[in-house]
Design a protein around this nucleic acid. Structure first.
Lengths: 164, 164
DNA sequence: GGGCCTTAGTTTCCGGTGTCAACTATTATG
DNA sequence: CATAATAGTTGACACCGGAAACTAAGGCCC
């Protein structure tokens, strides 16, 4: 095991902790939890996304996804409507308020990141971006490799399910 | 707002999601949740750490920290003993089993990261490490700037508490 | 077009988890 | 020695997500 990868792993873990549910935030923005925010962002970036797709994207069961959307709907950030093509399917979309809130949160966090990296020069900022793109791409590729067909919402994926 | 920082923020958020509680794992390793694992790692990296220090490090209240340690203790990963210097203070330490488990988890995740980055050359791996170090350092510095004295365990820190 | 299977989503029940506030126990202060 | 402060624990509570049962709609086959 190369020492570099141990370091990289530990650093990612630490960074993730700070940007995760218990890190800088806890509530993510006012009345949104991190999970709700991630769902909102996903819905905002899509058009007519279904409940299961949201669950799949965020590693929740359809039951969990349904409840997250309940909360977002109650808060007035998203709407549910039955698909005209298939009466079983729910099309979820953001309301104007939801889209605005998602944007505002992105701006706030981006400002935080900008402040955080204020001492870095332009070249390094570009480099940071590139490295993060590589990491995110790599994770996606790895995810896809591991991805068997999974029953409900694609949850339960674990590193440890490989060789346990 | 520089577009780069928006990108960087979104990438960090996405990466964090994969390494967070709902990402690759959910259970972190067998019988450990991510929170428990983070606590175990913290305890393993320290000597005679107190309950409050753990809570502070992980952004939990002392009550929450106490219960996390309960769980770890019940699973046989850590021990609590009263400090010889101050009868109110608990010294928490890992058992041999706890230390071994922490190490094993690090190895597994590191192997995952190694696999994930297998197509990157050595220079890029070094670069990734450097960038992550900068990011983690920057977050720490920023955290310290924001850190006022907080009542219980330092919880509740929020980006949005600054100007809301 | 009626019966059966499949699929999307919801709901109910339940266990896990973290916070708050109250409490115990110990130490510091004067 | 009395009072205050501090470390940690506990109990009540609310929240959250999963499993499974359920509802409703579509697909299919004869």
């Amino acid at each position: 095991m190369d020492k570099d990868f141990v370091n990289i792993y530990n650093l990612i873990q630490e960074l993730s902790w700070y940007f995760g549910a218990h890190g800088i935030n806890g509530e993510c923005c006012g009345d949104l939890s991190l999970v709700e925010y991630m769902a909102l962002k996903k819905i905002n970036d899509s058009e007519n996304i279904t409940v299961q797709e949201i669950g799949h994207a965020l590693n929740f069961t359809k039951s969990g996804a349904s409840k997250i959307i309940d909360r977002l709907e109650n808060k007035g950030y998203v709407t549910r409507e039955i698909s005209s093509l298939d009466g079983r399917v729910c099309c979820v979309n953001t309301t104007a308020k939801g889209a605005e809130t998602a944007l505002e949160i992105v701006h706030r966090y981006s400002a935080y990141v900008s402040e955080m990296l204020r001492t870095q020069n332009t070249a390094m900022v570009k480099n940071i971006k590139t490295v993060l793109e590589i990491l995110v791409d790599s994770v996606h590729r790895q995810e896809n490799l591991l991805h068997g067909k999974l029953p409900q919402g694609g949850g339960g994926m674990s590193i440890f399910s490989i060789d346990n």
